[in-house]
Design a protein around this nucleic acid. Structure first.
Lengths: 116, 116
DNA sequence: TTATCATATGAATAACTGTTCATATATTAT
DNA sequence: ATAATATATGAACAGTTATTCATATGATAA
């Protein structure tokens, strides 16, 4: 592989890209965030929580699957800062962490041209 | 596990969530989209392409790593509809597929409060 | 305190994914 | 044609991740 000589613009874009590249640490955090969104089972939970907060039992109702799997998925989402929790007696109530979550989902759906 | 009786709102939210849940197929497509964004190596390519289109050689320059790995990453991004290509002589020139891509990255960064 | 309900967790297995190495294809130049 | 350049691809291995099963924790009720 040798230098691509015939397009100076690419070379400038590459240099600029290198200068503006976020740090490894930042790129890693963004990637971790998207990784949490990359499983159908977890996305279903987020779609379910659009309508408002729910306890684990009802999340299981809404998305199907078994309790343990859903609990593991919730932990992943929580660790990624995508959902948050509060305790209400015996129940743990989950909700979307902030408005960015819905916004990202809607953007992705717009990109794919699927109505949700 | 038994029914969560003490919160009727959760039950309504669960029923509503089930009604409004996108199809398996749609959820799968959204998940695939995010999966493509979930690797640091691929995200770096997208950050690099913010400044404009580039051929593979310069993408390798900009993000580091070896040619084969970058090519595989590009294929994944292309298959997910996140970048697109055109041929220019010996080179294949890559660019972001549409404005949604930048928008999603910026939203994620806003969510994480990191400036990019 | 004991029993029950709601949720979380650890370990194990199975499935998936990324990277590397070697090589193939396609384009241009000689 | 032949060589060189630019990019892509298949196979194999290594690392990661999701699910399941069994069990643990924490909260309430009896």
């Amino acid at each position: 592989m040798a230098v691509c000589n015939h397009n100076e613009e690419h070379a400038r874009a590459a240099e600029q890209a290198k200068r503006n590249m976020p740090s490894e640490e930042e790129v890693g955090r963004v990637a971790a965030c998207f990784k949490a969104l990359s499983e159908p089972a977890r996305l279903k939970i987020l779609f379910a929580l659009r309508g408002g907060e729910m306890c684990v039992y009802h999340i299981v109702e809404a998305v199907g699957g078994n309790q343990s799997a859903v609990s593991h998925q919730l932990r992943t989402l929580r660790a990624a800062g995508i959902v948050r929790t509060r305790r209400d007696g015996q129940n743990i109530v989950y909700s979307l962490a902030d408005a960015h979550v819905i916004a990202v989902l809607e953007l992705a759906c717009a990109h794919l041209q699927c109505k949700i």
